[in-house]
Design a protein around this nucleic acid. Structure first.
Length: 460
RNA sequence: GCUCCUGUAGUGUAGUCCGGCCCAUCAUUCUGGCUUCUCGAGCCAGGGACUCGGGUUCGAAUCCCGACGGGAGCACCA
């Protein structure tokens, strides 16, 4: 990357709701470059469309960035900066680089499609400045940046800089009716905030070309524009508006519902911000479009948490067995197979104890089979009881996790919406909010729930 | 339709600028084997790609041309 001095990066979302997986790429990449080059990362909230704003996003976005280890160095909110935009457009109007028109939208678009000039386009700067002042107060119309009407790319011919939105703005109330559009506000801010590197998705390629017109007219030096390819995320709902809709319909319990790919949900399931960061960095910033892969992300996460997660037994769909043994037996199960310092989960099992096994595990067993209760002993399986068989491992014996009466109810929620009800060792209560591994099942994050224990499935 | 971007295994990625060290890297997935107190774990092995067709060259994933494929934009959204 081309860097001189202190590079300044930015993340510039619209405040339509909490952040999701899709946002994390821009955040991770920008934050990584900030860190590596000792630069700055600016968060700029782009709230210039009064009717696409979720007020909670103003607080949530900085918090979620912080969770992602991407705490912004500075935060700007575009709706606080309208005077700046007004000033700059006046400069452009005065220089004849922009115009005000009241031509109806459809008609105006048609003219552009045919490379034709709007009838107001060539009025004098004075007349446009007056029209602009009027538009601030009343009337209808738009302010347009002149480009090249003959541009072969129809997307690049004259673009809107301001339009009238009468709706009340959550932060600014009804003080303003003339709002800048994305392309205008972005150009002005990227320059005035000293952004040196604009790192964003390829979908902005045309926007970049539009924004360059403003830099050119203002005589400003352009930042480095870098575009990375688009990511398609199959089976992952990332449209904020749609998520919001489904939450209100009760399809999801909220933004942190573990079926969602919001930052909140990922965090609650136990994804590490570092894993997300590493994943996107490994992806790089090429302009090729890519397909997102959960297994790849999960693998990164797993390598990060494996040696930090305690092991516990969880028995989904438990079946109760009585247990018969000539003498008491000691369960000695390490909290982690490779970390003896963490100690063991131990308890004494006698003939008074019940043992619970998962229905899924025993479905293929027949009476008389020998199985091993992990970290305890071998038993002979009968329809409703287990008889002590021997203590040492027997080659080829299936090994199952189990719980005794020292258990707690737990419901395990999967990202696909399914739920397992089962029993977990009571050690679980000491590890609320932690990510642990349910042996033979996968990593989960334990969550406090007033009624009974809940866990969210992370990955294998 | 117009314009722009892009094309290495199922997925992601290295190599492409400055042609030979690439019968193409790493990770993940998949398959097989081994292992036994996670067989939904661990270990090992294997399969799997330069989109296609021309050209330049002693030599091309790398350069040129064409075709085809994928994506985006053409909003008074961001």
């Amino acid at each position: 990357m081309d860097v001189e001095g202190t590079p300044v990066f930015r993340f510039a979302p619209g405040p339509s709701g909490p952040l999701h997986l899709g946002h994390t790429r821009a955040i991770s990449l920008n934050a990584e470059y900030r860190d590596v080059y000792n630069g700055k990362l600016i968060l700029r909230i782009e709230d210039t469309n009064p009717n696409a704003i979720d007020e909670s996003a103003y607080d949530l976005i900085p918090k979620e960035m912080e969770w992602l280890d991407a705490k912004p160095d500075e935060i700007f909110i575009q709706s606080d900066r309208l005077d700046i935009y007004y000033n700059d457009i006046k400069t452009l109007l005065a220089a004849g680089h922009a115009y005000v028109t009241s031509t109806p939208a459809e008609e105006w678009r048609d003219l552009k499609r045919n490379s034709k000039s709007d009838k107001y386009r060539d009025l004098s700067p004075k007349e446009h400045l007056d029209a602009f002042e009027r538009l601030l107060m009343k009337g209808s119309g738009i302010v347009v940046i002149k480009t090249d009407l003959e541009d072969p790319n129809p997307a690049l011919r004259d673009f809107v800089a301001f339009r009238v939105v009468e709706d009340k703005h959550p932060r600014q109330g009804s003080n303003h009716r003339l709002w800048p559009t994305y392309n205008f506000a972005v150009s002005i801010d990227d320059y005035r905030l000293g952004i040196t590197h604009v790192l964003r998705g390829k979908d902005h390629l045309n926007n970049t070309e539009r924004q360059k017109w403003i830099y050119k007219y203002m005589g400003w030096k352009e930042p480095h524009f870098i575009h990375y390819g688009l990511v398609s995320m199959p089976d992952t709902l990332l449209k904020t508006s749609e998520i919001k809709q489904k939450i209100s319909e009760g399809v999801y319990e909220g933004w942190a519902d573990c079926q969602l790919a919001t930052v909140q949900a990922l965090a609650r399931r136990g994804f590490k911000s570092k894993a997300i960061r590493k994943f996107w960095i490994a992806g790089g910033i090429k302009e090729v479009d890519i397909t997102f892969s959960w297994p790849n992300l999960e693998s990164v996460n797993k390598s990060l948490i494996d040696s930090k997660s305690k092991r516990l037994f969880f028995v989904p769909n438990p079946i109760q067995f009585s247990f018969e043994t000539p003498s008491e037996i000691q369960k000695t199960a390490p909290f982690h197979p490779d970390i003896p310092e963490w100690g063991v989960r131990s308890e004494t099992i006698s003939s008074n104890s019940h043992i619970y096994l998962s229905k899924d595990d025993i479905s293929s067993l027949t009476s008389g089979d020998i199985i091993r209760l992990k970290n305890l002993c071998n038993v002979t399986f009968h329809d409703d009881k287990l008889n002590y068989h021997s203590i040492d491992n027997i080659k080829g014996t299936p090994i199952f996790q189990w719980v005794s009466d020292k258990n707690m109810n737990l419901s395990l929620h999967y990202p696909n919406g399914k739920k397992d009800i089962g029993l977990v060792e009571d050690y679980a209560i000491k590890h609320i909010q932690e990510t642990v591994q349910f042996e033979r099942l996968g990593f989960v994050t334990l969550s406090d729930s007033k009624v009974n224990l809940t866990a969210f499935y992370l990955h294998k």
